[in-house]
Nucleic acid binder design. Structure first.
Lengths: 225, 225
DNA sequence: ACTTGCTTACCGACCGGTAAGTAATAGCCG
DNA sequence: CGGCTATTACTTACCGGTCGGTAAGCAAGT
């Protein structure tokens, strides 16, 4: 009667194995697309037969939904929550971009899938994910609105600006390869600076900005994540 | 013996009907994804049975390849060629963004598909499309290199910058809806300015820049497309 | 004896694609 | 002009293969 008691001795037990399945499935779906990734292929990749896989997973849609929900959890925990602790909109914006970008460069898998593949969900599942994505979108747009209120935002529509920002950031998972010649930190730095500079009037790179009057309010540790 | 003589009286003859098929198929693939769009569904959408559709197209991959080739043609004709007629890198850059963005807002269809769906092609087809995309990518990166040589580019990696630029622009087709509350011109304007401002040091909006010393070299008609 | 963690064997649905036939038209012959 | 043939533009019927998903059973641990 316990779905979470776990803790047995066999190599990979319940939870651990399930986690492994989600991780690998996320990577495969990210690489080949949801439709092109068969349950058979996923089962093989985790050294199981298809019905063996179905022992851990209720269905293909549920698998995708679980991965996307996990990705949204990650996004909220690693991006939104830390951002809310910063007061200055410009710092918030930079942290959002940097943190989101870093999630995509470090072990992309799940978070990358959020971009595409919503079509693979059932109606109810899609509604839920879409709603969470909308909340994330609104959080960013409100940050831009705050910037606008301070006169720091260039004269652009905040909706267009938010989409542009997100497109640029999320696009990273389409071209960045962790093993390639580019260091992930460089990428995150460059993308963040391009994004912030494109939107914020008096944008200054946080590095070497300590002399600024409001520097006391700027937590480098956080902004640079 | 004629594959192109055409010109008959029946409602939709050879070429015209084929064009219609490609147009509708492009839209469907853009909306639902390549894998999720069956040949049966495409056939129905153009009021045919599946074998009727196969009278006009050789196969699903060939259909996709034809659409993507058409999209690349369009990109080269409407973006690359006009851009090459401008000398100043900053003008080139702005025109590229604006023209590409406009292709996506006006009757997206085919051009939008270039982003995703390369996985649906055969190896040889994918190689060809990838090569053409790489050429387009390089054209933009060289424009940024030229900017860098003039000291006008911010200190960012040109590859990262090119990807960021393209991600931002191509993302448009994921959120912009022609019938929505936003005017396509506004979107194109905003996106172009965000992109250029994020990359170019002394960026000035082309509107109201006539007083500049180099204004003679700036063809507003072209830059604003 | 019972649960856990699987396997072999199999299902109906739908996929891309094709073989074969057909109604309508075009072109040519006398 | 009528009559014949060939081509065009499709259709009905069907193919093998793969998909997501399941029924039933089995080996091992508790």
């Amino acid at each position: 009667m316990s779905t979470k008691t776990s803790k047995k001795k066999a190599g990979l037990f319940d939870d651990e194995r399930a986690g492994n399945i989600y991780r690998i499935a996320a990577q495969m779906i990210h690489e080949k697309g949801f439709d092109a990734t068969s349950m058979n292929a996923i089962a093989e990749a985790v050294d199981l037969t298809k019905p063996g896989l179905y022992y851990y997973v209720k269905g293909k849609k549920e698998l995708l939904f679980a991965i996307m929900s996990f990705a949204m959890d990650l996004l909220e925990k690693e991006v939104v929550q830390p951002a809310k602790e910063l007061d200055r909109p410009q710092d918030r914006l930079r942290l959002i971009v940097r943190r989101h970008a870093r999630l995509l460069t470090h072990e992309s898998g799940a978070v990358a899938i959020l971009i595409d593949e919503v079509g693979g969900l059932s109606d109810a599942q899609r509604d839920e994910i879409t709603e969470r994505k909308r909340a994330y979108f609104d959080f960013i747009r409100e940050t831009l609105e705050a910037l606008k209120a301070e006169g720091e935002l260039f004269d652009v529509d905040t909706t267009t600006a938010t989409f542009s920002l997100l497109g640029m950031v999320m696009w990273i998972c389409r071209w960045y390869q962790p093993g390639g010649r580019m260091d992930s930190d460089e990428v995150v730095n460059d993308v963040a600076e391009i994004a912030v500079r494109g939107l914020v009037r008096g944008s200054r790179s946080p590095i070497g900005a300590e002399a600024d009057t409001e520097a006391a309010n700027l937590d480098l540790e956080n902004v640079l994540s």
